[in-house]
């Protein structure tokens, strides 16, 4: 597979590295940058970052699998994260998750990330998103939605189209 990092992205990552006294520290930020561009962290991306930060691939592989925000497989264009932790659960996040899954034709009992067949949406239950006062909450890519009711969920989904 061809793996090429665009120059702007590489410059961005080079700039990020200068923020830290040790190159290794930049790994999380570099992973964010790469994931922002590619959507997920491929094996080649891991190797690329490791080389960039003068590390071994295992050092990056360890991180990618530790931090749940990093994806090791391609995901949908829109990643929907529904909070499942207590306050949101009390506020109806299970219903929201079920509703979204139903709407997108996914299995609402599944634990892990699922992607629609057209590769447009990925839905996932995640742990606390820290907006417990406005439960239930969800994220669609970087955007945050609070107090999501069924109509609001519809609205968000339509916006993604």
């Amino acid at each position: 597979m061809n793996f090429a990092v665009p120059t702007e992205l590489e410059t961005e990552i080079d700039e990020l590295i200068t923020h830290y006294p040790q190159k290794r520290s930049a790994s999380l930020m570099a992973l964010h940058a790469l994931q922002g561009h590619f959507g997920w962290i491929s094996r080649e991306a891991i190797e690329w970052i490791a080389q960039k930060l003068e590390l071994l691939p295992i050092n990056i592989y360890e991180l990618v699998t530790f931090y749940p925000m990093f994806r090791t497989n391609p995901v949908g264009k829109y990643q929907i994260k529904v909070c499942r932790t207590l306050s949101c659960a009390l506020g109806g996040s299970y219903k929201l998750h079920e509703y979204l899954c139903q709407k997108l034709g996914l299995d609402s009992n599944a634990q892990s990330l699922q992607t629609t067949k057209d590769g447009k949406f990925s839905v996932e239950f995640v742990e606390c998103l820290a907006s417990c006062g406005t439960a239930p909450v969800m994220m669609c890519n970087d955007d945050f939605y609070e107090g999501v009711t069924a109509p609001k969920a519809d609205e968000i989904l339509t916006k993604c189209k």
Binding site: L28, Y67, P68
Partner: peptide
């Protein structure tokens, strides 16, 4: 003083 933002990635 240098001050930077460092993003975590979803680990409590």
């Amino acid at each position: 003083l240098d001050l930077w933002v460092h993003r975590g990635a979803g680990a409590y």
